[in-house]
């Protein structure tokens, strides 16, 4: 079953795009119409009419997110794409429970999200590793918090560290690792406590192009094994298309969902093949154009 071409459900999450309904541009880019298909995909995360307003110094407030509606199905790899400052991180933090929405609710498996929890594991662009702990200590942290015994936690963590390709670095401190290695540790630390959802906020944004490609591949391999639900923020169109089942394109401030694009490319995806694939190229070009449209709008107004 695994690795077969998986037809993704035309989802129900495409009703509201802040009034700006989009007509599908290309037949390949089926943005869905709001009708649920017969598939039994379970909703993992539901974001319903979420807005976020930040109080800034002075009396003005800043609308970062406006009326976001999005459903992420169990096992889906969904990317959020948009210009910097459009509220991608904020949306992810709301799902993480780190930031409360000003209006609307985010739900996880049907229950409203009120705070962070080990069912949703974040991976940040800044790695956010504990500098006072070694690689092993960082990866073990979550397991120890869950009450797993030290020896057992250690064994599991060592396996994970091997899986992310850091065997031999268990007793290194984060400062002794390169950026790519740090992000591998951060991913292992989050995977360790087995969240149902991975929330990744531009995880490869701080890495050089080469490291970035390698980590994308490794992430896909890990994901193919257990098909966790992933919510992945990026501003690289190629990265989003390469990794995802679905790409959510956002407009610049106030952040709204402009369009949701299903990426209907076979898995497992091999980068070398995909780069030559005309469907892949088309997705990239079309989404880039979509983002450019947004910019024109902003400049005209």
């Amino acid at each position: 079953m695994r690795g077969k071409v998986r037809k993704l459900s035309p989802p129900s999450e495409r009703q509201a795009t802040g009034g700006r309904m989009q007509v599908p541009l290309r037949p390949e880019i089926d943005t869905g119409t709001g009708a649920t298909s017969g598939e039994r995909a379970r909703a993992m995360i539901e974001i319903a009419s979420v807005s976020k307003r930040f109080e800034t110094s002075g009396r003005k407030s800043h609308l970062a997110l406006s009326d976001i509606n999005l459903t992420v199905n169990d096992g889906a790899f969904v990317s959020i794409l948009g210009p910097s400052g459009c509220g991608k991180s904020t949306l992810l933090y709301i799902v993480g429970g780190f930031v409360a929405p000003s209006e609307g609710v985010a739900r996880m498996k049907g229950a409203a999200i009120t705070g962070p929890g080990p069912d949703r594991g974040p991976v940040f662009q800044e790695f956010a590793l504990f500098p006072w702990k070694t690689v092993l200590g960082n990866v073990m942290y979550g397991l120890r918090q869950q009450g797993v015994k030290r020896t057992e936690a250690e064994a599991q963590s060592l396996r994970l560290i091997e899986m992310v390709g850091l065997k031999g670095f268990e007793h290194f401190y984060p400062k002794e690792l390169s950026g790519g290695m740090k992000q591998r540790v951060a991913i292992a630390r989050t995977l360790a406590y087995r969240p149902s959802v991975l929330l990744m906020d531009e995880p490869f944004g701080a890495l050089d192009a080469h490291t970035r490609t390698r980590l994308q591949n490794d992430l896909l391999n890990i994901w193919e094994r257990d098909r966790k639900t992933v919510l992945f923020v990026t501003h690289s169109v190629e990265e989003a298309v390469f990794l995802s089942d679905k790409v959510v394109v956002m407009t610049r401030a106030p952040g709204r969902i402009k369009q949701i694009v299903d990426i209907d490319l076979p898995r497992p995806r091999i980068r070398a093949e995909l780069l030559l694939d005309s469907h892949y190229q088309k997705y990239v070009v079309d989404i880039e154009r979509m983002i450019d449209d947004g910019r024109d709008d902003a400049e005209h107004s």
Partner: peptide
Amino acid sequence: EQKLVWSALAAGTPRWQILFKVIAPA
């Protein structure tokens, strides 16, 4: 760093322990 606190919270650290587990060592 706020994200250290968030990482610990997401890993299941109770809020009252954040002071000793994250803020003091950091």
